[in-house]
Design a binder for these strands. Structure first.
Length: 670
DNA sequence: CTTACACGCTTTTTT
DNA sequence: AGCGTGTAAG
């Protein structure tokens, strides 16, 4: 008898992979990359190849025949998504660029813009403007100083939405002093919501809320959206909030293929409603989840991890975890005591120059700090010495007053009901304050810009109106429109700002950027969703093509790595922040923040602090961060800065050479 | 009644 | 360095 063997056609055909996944990944990474069906959680300590794993998984899924368009990769920042997709592309091919990716907020906007009537996005400051307006309309200010200010109101609102807790709970837990005003707070928050509805405005939180709402109430949309997501990949899962977890659950409802990657030790966005416990309860939320742990650290030398491990041991929560280095031993991290902030900057500049001379690229060095302003003095010092740098974090170009002024005109054209934009634009005119602006806005009932202007403002109003009418009729491209708006704005800029020259340059940058956008709405929305985050300072003498030194807040440094990392201003009251020390949970978050900073370093890690700080009232002595206090000198080596010619002899450390004038880095133990 | 301006105080991190 | 408040001027 002859037998014919029928191949099973239902089983997935084993593809011929172009990449030999088994040999380029370690077993745990491979397990995650090759994971077949159902939810999976990858718990990945710092430097264990988390990004690499996601990148290879994307490539593998595509090689297995998954349509890239059916893969959704949600990351914390747009920068992270771009980087991953870029890396996947270089690994495999251009198909990876078709993967859908971005932030939760960006993804939600993409969806909502197809399903909601047109709306305008409010960034944090716009939301604050609106809240301020609502607050003053409610006569809140008269209720005495006990009534929360606009930022507190927004914080309450945001916590209410993102944590999905009641306003009463939020106020009693986080702002107990405002408990007597609870009813008034609710009233103001309701009005805030009403205004947003009336004016077709959505704030960041609304993007998440409305998307969840859409998916839960519209079965057709949900079927199409979730049905179109064969694989959902979630990066930085420890920083997702309750709302985002709900969203993720909806998005993967049809295919059930969700992979989350995260590290509870790196949860640093509690202030935005994230809760690292979501990682721990992942299995409850996504039943049957496989947990894969990545433990081998490929990034840092062991002495850096010793400090990182030491920091982690200080946290109240005990999810014990020890990173161990594949790379082995290296230099012991330093705790550098400078006398003043100025000396701290001098030290860093000279170290950077020494490193540069010994062949390290500037782009391999990063200076990290808790607060954006912590780097002000260093920025001056770097500029003086002609060291090129780029700064991430803090105030963004697109959030600065002059850029927002200019964009408000475009926003009016996009959405004539946008009272926040009208208010901003009108307030630029001489003699028009909140009251007059509000009166005008109340008169606007159509997008025909006609109203009865008081004689006092007549000329200015006519100017503004003809600008709007002209742009409305001609609808030039965004860059041409901006050019026209800048003509109008020029005199305002010069009158309003002392440093109008510098701000004018910013506006030129904006103009240049606007060429990339097809519509006003796209330009305005993109700038809110993905603010221009880096402010580059190009200094003459930078070698063409060499990446500059990186200055970054620790928050913005998440997910990145450098050969040498300095952490600035390691002071008690800075990290941990003065305003967190009463709350153990918040102190823990500050600790994790320092942990994140420490684990960015590959070869060398230096914590610096000034012993003397300056405040308005005078100089005062400081204490180094309590987190760095208890380390033995074998783990964290104290460095003393000594002036040249003061009798101390330099140790022969290649990175600490004495040929730079005024070199202070003679090392002293103890 | 509104706006403009000066002064004193200060929570920061991001979508 | 910005924000809210108090004060004086329009």
């Amino acid at each position: 008898m002859k037998r014919f063997v029928l191949k099973s056609e239902s089983a997935e055909r084993r593809p011929d992979y172009r990449i030999d996944y088994g040999s380029v990944l370690n077993p745990a990474q491979y397990k995650a990359v090759a994971h077949g069906g159902g939810p999976a959680l990858v718990v990945a300590g710092a430097g264990t190849g988390k990004t690499r794993t996601l990148v290879y998984r994307v490539a593998r899924l595509i090689e297995s025949g998954v349509d890239p368009d059916q893969i959704v990769l949600l990351t914390f920042t747009r920068r992270a998504a771009d980087e991953m997709i870029e890396r996947a592309s270089s690994l495999l091919d251009g198909r990876c660029r078709l993967v859908r990716g971005g932030t939760f907020h960006g993804f939600c906007h993409g969806l909502l813009s197809q399903h909601l009537p047109p709306y305008t996005l409010l960034d944090a400051e716009d939301a604050a403007d609106l809240m301020h307006h609502v607050r003053s309309q409610a006569g809140a200010a008269r209720n005495g100083s006990l009534f929360p200010n606009r930022n507190t109101l927004l914080a309450i609102q945001s916590a209410h939405v993102n944590r999905q807790e009641s306003v009463a709970d939020i106020v009693s837990a986080r702002h107990p002093s405002h408990l007597p005003a609870l009813d008034a707070i609710r009233e103001v928050l309701n009005r805030y919501a009403d205004h947003k509805l009336d004016q077709h405005l959505l704030d960041f939180d609304d993007l998440l809320v409305r998307t969840l709402d859409l998916l839960r109430t519209d079965a057709v949309v949900k079927g199409r959206v979730s049905g179109g997501i064969r694989h959902l990949l979630l990066d930085e899962f420890q920083d997702t909030n309750a709302l985002q977890v709900d969203l993720a659950a909806e998005l993967c409802a049809v295919h059930g293929q969700v992979m989350a990657v995260g590290d509870d030790a790196q949860s640093i966005y509690g202030f935005r409603g994230s809760d690292h416990r979501h990682i721990l309860s992942f299995g409850d939320r996504f039943p049957g989840a496989v947990v894969i742990t990545l433990e081998e650290n490929y990034r840092s030398v062991q002495p850096i991890l010793n400090v990182a491990n030491g920091l982690l041991e200080l946290t109240k929560q005990v999810y014990p975890k020890r990173l161990s280095a594949v790379r082995g031993m290296g230099e012991v991290p330093a705790l550098v005591k400078a006398r003043t902030v100025v000396e701290q900057s001098r030290f860093i500049c000279q170290m950077v120059l020494n490193l540069r001379e010994s062949g390290m690229e500037l782009g391999q060095i990063a200076i990290l700090f808790r607060n954006s302003r912590d780097s002000f003095d260093l920025e001056t010092a770097l500029t003086q010495r002609g060291i090129p740098f780029v700064k991430y974090g803090g105030l963004r170009l697109s959030e600065s007053a002059h850029v927002k002024d200019v964009l408000s005109i475009l926003r009016i054209l996009v959405n004539p009901a946008d009272g926040v934009a009208w208010n901003r634009a009108l307030s630029l005119l001489d003699g028009i304050g909140p009251k007059t602006a509000a009166d005008f806005i109340a008169q606007i009932r159509s997008d025909a810009y006609d109203w009865t202007a008081g004689v006092r403002y007549k000329d200015q109003i006519t100017d503004l109106l003809s600008l709007l009418t002209e742009l409305k009729a001609a609808r030039p491209k965004p860059d041409a429109a901006l050019r026209r708006i800048l003509e109008w704005y020029g005199p305002v800029l010069r009158k309003k700002f002392e440093d109008h020259v510098k701000r004018g340059q910013d506006l030129e940058v904006l103009l240049e950027m606007s060429e990339r956008y097809g519509t006003y709405a796209e330009l305005v929305t993109k700038l809110s969703l993905e603010p221009i985050e880096a402010t580059a300072v190009d200094v003459a003498g930078a070698e063409a093509g060499e990446k500059p030194l990186v200055l970054s807040t620790i928050h913005s440094a998440k997910g990145l790595e450098w050969k040498v990392v300095f952490v600035l201003q390691c002071l008690d009251g800075v990290i941990p922040s003065l305003y967190s020390i009463d709350n153990p949970d918040q102190v823990d978050e500050e600790l994790r923040l320092l942990y994140v900073a420490a684990t960015r370093a590959q070869d060398m890690l230096l914590f610096t602090y000034p012993a003397l700080a300056r405040s308005g009232s005078g100089d005062y002595f400081t204490k180094p961060s309590r987190f760095l206090d208890g380390f033995p000198e074998t783990d964290l080596e104290p460095w003393l800065l000594v002036e040249e010619g003061s009798g101390f002899k330099a140790l022969d450390d290649p990175t600490v050479t004495a040929d730079v004038p005024q070199d202070p880095e003679n090392r002293e133990d103890g």
